[in-house]
Amino acid sequence: MAVEALGATVVVSTPRRRDGRWLWVLPPLVLIGVLVVYPLVLVAIESIPAWGDVVGSAEFRDALVRTVQIAVSSTVGCLVVGTFLAVVISFVPFPGARVVAGLVDTMLALPSFLVALSFTFIYGTTGILRAGGFLTSPWAVVLAEVTFYTPFVMRPLLAAMSRLPRAQLDVAASLGAGPWRVLRQVVLPEVRPALVAGGGLTLLLTLNEFGIVLFLGAKGTTTLPMLVHTKGIVMFDYPGACAIAVVQIALSLGLYAVLRMALGGRRARLD
């Protein structure tokens, strides 16, 4: 890494040594271009022959509907559970609430398939609840995703709630508002951007979720990412896999674009 070349453009307003600037800005972009954009473009090109077959198939349409169903149900679940947990941690604090908040942060970095793995013990045919039928239903996927993605809703909510002045809640209570009214009319309106950010991110990630579906191996539960895997790796049908991937890319990027527009300058919260 040529520090001289890097340094030349650190002060953005320095007009001299413009040629050095490219050496500083370009390499990361080239890396992403070669390793992400170029492959995705190839995927789109590969998909063209299989386009008609795949889009017309019932298998694809079922998977699309299932994917959206699971993602929306999971997101709604995460929003409800995550909001409740975040409100308690923030506004009805108990000893150890900070530990719980720290735990939530840790969970963001854990692999999702752990949850699916645990479900085989909890709901499996020989497990705690022996609800074998449940394990193969889409609801198992939804429950696993609610478990795994609730922290993703909680994190932005906890941050937003910690910025909410306590005095507002106090004053609202002094004006005669009960907890429910304070929550509805003071807290929720003010953390709405965080709610949208967390919910949007969760919707995106649940649309894309693969590990949980793979590990639960639910027969009736084929989602688009699962279908990409099956077609590409199990059946070696690259064009078919690519066609589905293109739909998935369009879906995800469309949602991502909407989210970025909705959140405006608060881009960082999507990370």
């Binding site: 002045p165 005095a167 507002q168 106090d170 004053v171 609202a172 002094s174 009319q185 003071v186 309106p189 003010e190």
Partner: peptide, 12 residues
């Protein structure tokens, strides 16, 4: 109660 920073509800 009137608090120091007023705590007016910003969305109302």
């Amino acid at each position: 109660v009137v608090v120091q920073q007023y705590a007016l509800f910003p969305h109302l």
